[in-house]
Nucleic acid binder design. Structure first.
Lengths: 349, 349
DNA sequence: CTGAAAGCGCTAACAT
DNA sequence: ATGTTAGCGCTTTCAG
């Protein structure tokens, strides 16, 4: 009754149904051009044997694998898991599956992941590269004949198309908003300045400050609660304490928020706070936190879509084909006004 | 310079290196029993051709696929994405990859996902089943010869091993804690009462209330902000308003928290709040929220580990082999005391 | 409408 | 230490 070790094969089905393998193959591929009677007989055999086509054999035959690789730093990070969810929807709609691999921002793990996916002959690859100094990844990706799209971060000096949010514009908008509030001393706080996204945001902040004739101050000394407390304490004891803080990533925003609360430094009356990246309870904490929101779902969608569009236009050969280099416009971010920047509290959801 | 359409094959490498296919095979599988000189020559050929073994061919040869399927309702849900991350670590350590598929709690999508994974011949399957009434999934899983472990929720009346948190004990502990605070009128609020986890939590709540001689009240009318506001308003206008609220899932906890805030009903002085499931900013909002925390990482780890242990003990044939039925003890949950239940504010991280 | 047969790329006896 | 060869399960001409 129960199959023991092995799976039933197509030819077993054929034998049981008393037909040739070709016929069975036709049946499992839609059943066109098969006599209804034969069809029924084959289907019965399939049923009884619990037959399921072996994907590996199909792939070996030269078919597409109908798999897309997705390489990200972490799947527990809400940003990336949302991207994954969005990408998965598109991939699914194209009758394929997404293989998600994580790298923990380790370039070696990243290389391994790509390697593994290539061995699996994924039809396409979406990757949010950890910014390694060495161009190893770029070189590797340049050498393969599989379509690749980078997500969130580009690969320096490569022709690989990328789906990016407009980090520069987002930071500009945020900084300008703080300036419009009348704040002069605006401090920007961040970590991981080696990341492309962070660099762009810093650039947006600096240029906007400069344009307004204000002095840009970028601090990278907030790492955890301890360092944050130490730094903020120092900052607010100075003769010219900041009037606003612009935090460039989620964890920094939250850490700073907590420490300010603990130190009794009131937001926004004592200091305004604006964070890059929206997060779950940003509008539930008090005061609610004004943020720059990225079009996360869009990014996941677009990356996957770009991949499938590329499939259609060619055979997936593109490393040498420079015609697709039109870099797609960066996706626009949005300023979500809440209370921490000093805006009047408005009606809540 | 660049490969055009096709990938290099093993025999192309063999030809280029002037050796037989076996030798090349040996080289890519560790290079044992190969003359150093030959080895070098083959490696060079591999390099020049950009050769990467075709996983499909290996699989076809009968090898394990070194893939594990992971089927969950959503990858954007922090609970499941954390599980996935944890499981992935174990899977990775066993030199395999995790294929994550999501179902949106749709039983059809779930069946499809399992089907797809079976065609890919995954070596094992981890699944958090959506609780479909029909036993379709159970029957399907019972029929296949691939090791399966269910996660977070069991499949009714099946011998499939599962990794579960002790929802009953968690709810008992939480309810008892509220009772110990002296609250008599404790209302339990939830959704999705068809889920196993929720049912267990409700059971824990009810039995504990009963044991204390208190009346259990379970409400399922909080769906969104609107319904929550309506329901809570009614509740607190009554002659005997609740003294404590026990919310059984994250989104309910947050919704209730927001609405209470909006209505100006103070926590915990007016009403205490205790939620099932910890979440990111539960200790940053004011008051911080007391919760039952599940050992999420443990669950992901354990599920994957159980799978690999099963591989070792047999050939992966187990549907008929009842010897492994010892249901592993359910993983223990923890009560994280914060302010919303009425406990004295203590020092924060 | 159906069947026979040739591979897809790789591994693993079995030779040498 | 290395080469020869027979499949793994499927799709796909090419004939009937």
């Amino acid at each position: 009754m129960t199959k023991r070790t092995r799976h039933a094969t197509l030819s077993e089905v054929a034998k049981k149904a008393g037909v040739g393998t070709t016929t069975v193959s036709r049946v499992i591929n839609g059943g066109q051009r098969v006599d209804p009677k034969t069809l029924a007989r084959v289907q019965l055999a399939i049923e009884r044997l619990g037959y399921m086509p072996n994907q590996a054999a199909r792939i070996l035959k030269g078919d597409r694998t109908r798999t897309i690789g997705f390489v990200i730093p972490s799947i527990a990070d809400p940003f990336f898991s949302s991207c994954a969810e969005a990408a998965q929807a598109i991939v699914r709609a194209n009758d394929s599956v997404l293989i998600v691999l994580t790298t923990q921002n380790d370039p070696t793990a990243e290389l391994d992941a790509v390697n593994m996916l290539m061995r699996h002959r994924v039809d396409g690859l979406i990757i949010a590269p950890c910014n390694a100094e060495d161009g190893l990844l770029g070189r590797m990706l340049g050498r393969i004949s599989t379509p690749v799209v980078t997500l969130d971060r580009p690969i320096q000096g490569s022709a690989i198309p990328s789906i990016l949010a407009d980090n520069f514009a987002g930071a500009t908008m945020a900084t300008q908003h703080l300036i419009d509030h009348g704040y002069k001393r605006i401090v920007c706080m961040t970590r991981e300045t080696n990341l492309y996204t962070i660099q762009e945001r810093v650039r947006g902040y600096k240029e906007t400050m400069k344009a307004a004739g204000l002095k840009a101050v970028v601090s990278t000394s907030v790492e955890d609660h301890v360092s944050a407390e130490k730094y903020l304490l120092k900052l607010f004891k100075s003769a010219t304490p900041p009037q606003a803080l612009f935090t460039l990533k989620n964890s920094t925003t939250i850490t700073v928020f907590e420490v300010l609360q603990k130190l009794g430094i009131e937001i926004p009356s004592k200091v305004a706070l604006l964070g890059y990246d929206d997060f779950q309870l940003a509008d539930v904490v008090r005061p609610s936190i004004t943020v720059v929101r990225q079009p996360i779902e869009d990014m996941g969608h677009s990356a996957a879509e770009l991949l499938f569009k590329r499939f259609l236009s060619g055979d997936g050969i593109s490393s040498t084909d420079g015609s697709h280099n039109r870099r797609p416009a960066q996706l626009t971010t949005k300023l979500i006004l809440r209370d921490s920047c000093g805006c009047e509290p408005t009606s809540k959801s």
